[in-house]
Structures are given as C-alpha cells and as structure tokens.
C-alpha cells in the first residue's frame, strides 16, 4: 500500500507524520521524501546512506558541423530553450522539458540528446525502513524529474510512505499520484483551513481517497473540525501542541521518542487507513 502525506500549507507537520509513521511500524517500510526542493525527512530518520545516483534529463546537443541553421528546432520548441544566433544554435538546458521534438524534427539529423544533471537521489536504511530521498540542485526550476526518480524505487510489497511537497500544483501531484491513500496534515487556523480546502479539491480531481490529521489541535479555532464534519472527511488523528514536542522537533528528535504512546497511535492510524482503502 502507498500512503502519501501532503498539505497545501507548508510547515503543518507533514514530515513529523511521515517519519513517525515510518518509525512506528514494525513491518517492512519504504519512506520516500519527495519534497525535493526542501527535503527534511533524513534529519529525523538519520538513515545510513548506501547509494547515491545523479538525476539527469535528456537535453538536445546540436552538432555544429551538421546543423544547417534552418531554425526549425528553435521554432517548434514550446519552451524557448533553443535560439539561433549569429550562425550558431544555442541550447538552454534549464528551460528544456525533454519532450524530444527538436531531435525528431531536425531535418539534418544534427541533434542528439545528452544527459543534463538536475539533482540526485540517495538510498539508505534505518532498521526496517528503506529510506529514499531526492534533492533538486539549487537554481533548477523543474522538480518533476527528481520526484519521478525517487518514485522509481517504489516497492509495492512494502508499506510505502511518501512525504510530498507542500502546495496543490505539479510537484505535489507528481508526488501523490499513484497512491492508495493521502493523509492531509493541517493546523486549526484560517491559513490551515484555507489550504486544506485547496488540497481536498486537488485530491478530488485526481481521485485518491484521503483523511485529515489535525496538528497543534489545541491552538487556533474550531473551524477546521467543523469543515471536516460538514464535508464528511474523516479526522484520523489529532496531535496537541506542546513545547516539549516543538523542542524535540527542533533537534531532529522524532515525536515517538518523547511520547512513546504515539507509536500505538501511529499503528492505529495505519489500521484506520487500511480499513478505508479496503472498504469498497
């Protein structure tokens, strides 16, 4: 089973949920940190990193000896990643989406594709957890290929937990899609609620079942609970704010090390998710 942990708003506790859920389970677990812009799960899991792979995308390389400067490639590139200037073709890999159209349409056959590095993935382990995360190189705008590279390692025989990036746009959807269930982590403030409503709309659009976890449930107001009740969205867990939890988090200490009873709560959470997913 694949469970994604997501939220519209950042800083609501996605990483707290995904790492503590992974650490609480006793069966074989895969934890994938797909927040490749700002990956954090490793700070709490502290895995032993065993492998590192670069993530590349294919981008065009133009052979100047063959290129006739016809300009077809620059014309068809939807991303303006190629320019023909002063008798030479220039390629801007940062803008390329690797669609392959330029190579296909080049009448002279002057274009081949070469690998361009955009980030890396690392594989590691901690006890029963197989840990995988990716990192987007700073200054690169497109996170999708790195997220895909992380998800390529999914082993469906294990319980797979995906820590998704915040938001409702393409990187979040890339991380969540293909999951059996999505946990939406929110906090009971107008910000949290506003962004939860966006997340719910996103999940309806991609048709994945979901439930809510309210973090810092004793701060803020009651409107998030009311919204979930009205919309018939299951609230699967509530975590209270206290300074002990916040201080532990700040040091990279998992919640379950401070309050061991949460191990049981996270185990129950998985059971609840299984029930929802398996109910037709």
């Amino acid at each position: 089973m694949i469970i994604a942990v997501a939220s519209g708003k950042g800083g609501t506790g996605k990483t707290t949920i995904s790492t503590n859920l992974a650490l609480s389970l006793t069966d074989q677990v895969q934890l994938l940190d797909c927040d490749v812009e700002e990956p954090n799960a490793h700070l709490f899991i502290k895995p032993e990193i065993l492998e590192k792979h670069t993530v590349t995308i294919p981008v065009p390389q133009i052979d100047r000896a063959i290129c006739t400067l016809c300009g077809k490639c620059a014309k068809i590139c939807a991303y303006n990643a190629i320019a023909i200037i002063a008798k030479q073709a220039m390629v801007f890999p940062e803008l390329c989406h690797s669609c392959g159209a330029c190579k296909y349409f080049c009448p002279a056959g002057a274009i081949k594709e070469v690998n361009h590095e955009v980030g890396f993935t690392e594989l590691g382990s901690k006890n029963n957890i197989q840990f995988i995360h990716g990192q987007l190189n700073v200054g690169k705008a497109i996170a999708i290929p790195v997220i895909k590279a992380v998800k390529n390692h999914i082993d469906k025989t294990k319980t797979v937990i995906i820590d998704a990036p915040p938001g409702t746009t393409c990187p979040t959807i890339e991380a969540i899609k293909g999951s059996n269930f999505c946990l939406l982590v929110t906090e009971p403030t107008p910000f949290g609620l506003n962004d939860l409503i966006l997340s719910v709309a996103t999940l309806k659009k991609i048709n994945i079942p979901y439930g809510v976890i309210i973090n810092r449930s004793n701060l803020g107001d009651n409107s998030t609970e009311q919204y979930c009740n009205q919309e018939d969205i299951p609230i699967l867990m509530r975590i209270k704010f206290d300074k002990k939890i916040a201080a532990a988090y700040s040091n990279g200490t998992p919640l379950i090390n401070i309050y061991p009873e949460y191990r049981q709560h996270f185990g129950d959470l998985l059971k609840k998710i299984k029930t929802i997913v398996e109910t037709p």
Binding site: N80, A83, M90
Partner: peptide, 18 residues
Amino acid sequence: PNIEAANGVGIKSAQLMS
C-alpha cells in the same frame, strides 16, 4: 511578440535583437 511566453522570454527577445 514574446511577452506572453511562459519561459525563455529573454532568449526570444535577444533572438529578435539579433
């Protein structure tokens, strides 16, 4: 003519200069 493009407007405009 490039003002509406999502990406690479600087490149397109530079191409126009050329």
